[in-house]
Write a protein that binds this DNA or RNA. Structure first.
Lengths: 295, 295
DNA sequence: CTGTTTATGTAGTAATGCTACAAAAAATAC
DNA sequence: GTATTTTTTGTAGCATTACTACATAAACAG
């Protein structure tokens, strides 16, 4: 009776992909048909789906049961939910005739669905490894150029909140100097979307030679990983359109959020209380700025 | 026959809310029932929904038609899609026992649904106004501190791609100086999540006195708006949890994407071709960095 | 090759969504 | 205020749809 544990679904599409091997031959035909064009299945009826997969209707139903759904209807609902994110960017080619509302919808939609895509491809083991290293860091330096430089600066603003002193030098000379001055116990986080930028590869090498641990955050399985102790790959869907928002930097910011939250939670017991004060100090800063104003 | 133009749906829940006034009495009962507990309707059948709203089944169907759906099934699918975003953050309180996978899921989920929230509350007229001003700018200066400073730097990296020279001074003294040196035809974009930071208010005033147009990007209907020619309010849901990702900076980046894309599209005819070159130059820059390396 | 298990399809059933029509309510005209 | 039209809502029936019991076919073991 029991074939395998029914995967408690959240993202059906992902579940189907993972269950592919456990399915029977004709059930797999259904699975492939669904994966091939999920959007179309949404509009289709049970009979149509069966015809499309060249199987009988009950097989489709058994397929639904196999992936943990109550029935075909339930399956379609879950599918709709999964597709809500993945579907958003359809027809999101920006056009100069677009109204502002359309532009807002398209760019937000594209950003949201891209983030979903990134999430599904993020390797939690890579992230765990990075957290492990960061948790034990005495100090952290973030390195990046261009858009990745923005991410580095952002990270440098977040981590101190959890009791880790850190920096983010912005120009290549400062970066190499800082990397050269690092010492065992320190951690260097090198951010490079392409992973090809030579200046960044060099920073990674230098930091490592100085005895620091090196973590890379990059957009693909790129050369820079060879110079690092841990690497987080943020896979974004390439989009050649000029006006397309650069999703990689936003995805990287979210990863920074994850890392800082994880490190923060680990240090919670020790530094948790300090945070409330920090926030009050920041508030005070805003007041004090008024007095030091006119240069 | 024709009652009102059927709203081409995207987010059904939003459509329902907007259509409330145009609906008939008993259709509105259905609408309210759905809005009251959309999650429950997803699992319900047509008959159940009708019973819950104390109306007949055809009324429910007419309701579906009125909000632009093909029928009850179609309505449920669209509802599922809308809810996919809105439901994500449930139970996303971060806990120190969370596994890395859970952490990733929660933070991405929170970010995604927050962006959806922001999108639904963004006033396209405010954005249009900002686009209008930016399109005519001779040069643009972005101002921000802390997390907003990161956004300013990001913006300063994007806009030049579309033919607008710009800057983003980072410390308060540079900011005031730059603001004081601006001239008619220039545009200052002042980014402040709180909208209370005095240094930023001052920058806005100074820039305006210099004859520049001033645009504010802020988190609420805040005092800084009084000093500006246009304002974009990015409403984010406050979350007091320490480790919660700062959604406002990410939302602001998306807004920057929208603004830059819009301005870019407007200048398309003139500057569109230049972009391809720009990208090639950037690639070359990566190579050249190797030679200038060792300080 | 035979018996057993597993996988798939056929045929029928219950229920679901939908439509034609009628009743009721509201609006308008006189 | 009544009559007539228009609009709104409900009733009853129909066509489809999803699903289930059973039978057949395929795979496998001995």
């Amino acid at each position: 009776m029991t074939r395998f544990n029914p995967p408690a679904a959240e993202n059906v599409i992902e579940v189907i992909r993972q269950s592919l091997d456990d399915l029977r031959k004709s059930e797999r035909k259904v699975a492939e048909t669904v994966l091939d064009n999920p959007q179309h299945i949404l509009g289709a009826t049970l009979a149509e789906t069966a015809a499309l997969a060249l199987v009988s209707e009950p097989t489709v139903i058994r397929f639904c049961a196999a992936i943990g759904c109550e029935g075909f209807q339930d399956f379609k609902l879950r599918l709709a939910r999964s597709l809500a994110l993945g579907t958003l960017p359809t027809g999101s080619q920006l056009e100069s005739e677009d109204t502002t509302s359309e532009l807002i919808g398209k760019i937000f939609g594209y950003t949201i669905s891209s983030l979903d895509w990134v999430r599904n491809r993020l390797d939690s083991r890579q992230v765990s490894q990075a957290i492990q290293i960061l948790s034990n860091a005495q100090s952290i330096e973030f390195f990046g150029l261009g858009a990745s430089g923005v991410v580095a600066i952002d990270a440098q603003q977040k981590f101190p909140l959890f009791g880790v002193p850190c920096g983010a030098p912005t120009d290549t000379h400062q970066q190499i100097m800082t990397a050269a001055m690092m010492k065992p116990g320190d951690v260097a986080v090198v951010i490079s979307n392409t992973g090809l930028t030579l200046a960044m590869i060099e920073v990674a090498q230098t930091a490592r030679e100085s005895g620091a641990k090196v973590i890379a955050i990059t957009g693909s399985r790129s050369p820079i990983l060879a110079e690092c102790d841990a690497g987080i790959i943020i896979e974004t869907l390439e989009n050649t359109n000029i006006y397309t928002p650069a999703i990689s930097r936003i995805a990287a910011l979210v990863v920074i959020d994850i890392l800082s939250a994880a490190v923060g939670l680990r240090r919670d017991a020790e530094h948790g209380e300090k945070f409330a004060n920090m926030k009050r100090l920041l508030l005070g800063q805003r007041r004090r700025l008024q007095n030091t104003k006119k240069m």
